[in-house]
């Protein structure tokens, strides 16, 4: 439902900007933006990791050692 609603609001915004009441086009676009951000956050959230990405963590020890030497 969210993705369908997102594309529907974007299409309505484009149509309103072209041939409907233009004052409603931008609010429709912002509704689309809010739905998009919400769905994006929902998609990337993992119950295991949250919003973190542990698979791209780097080893800190070599970096710390380099700083100490400098």
């Amino acid at each position: 439902m969210p993705m369908t609603a997102i594309f529907a609001t974007m299409l309505i915004a484009l149509i309103l900007d072209r041939s409907g009441p233009r004052s409603l086009a931008v609010p429709c676009l912002f509704l689309c933006l809010i739905l998009s951000v919400w769905l994006f956050l929902w998609e990337i959230y993992s119950p295991e990791y949250g919003f973190r990405m542990p698979w791209i963590q780097v080893e800190m020890e070599p970096c710390v050692a380099l700083v100490r030497v400098a």
Partner: peptide
């Protein structure tokens, strides 16, 4: 990927 298309349509708007 679909959200990226939406973002591109937003830029087009």
């Amino acid at each position: 990927c679909l959200l990226q298309r939406v973002a591109m349509f937003g830029v087009c708007f």
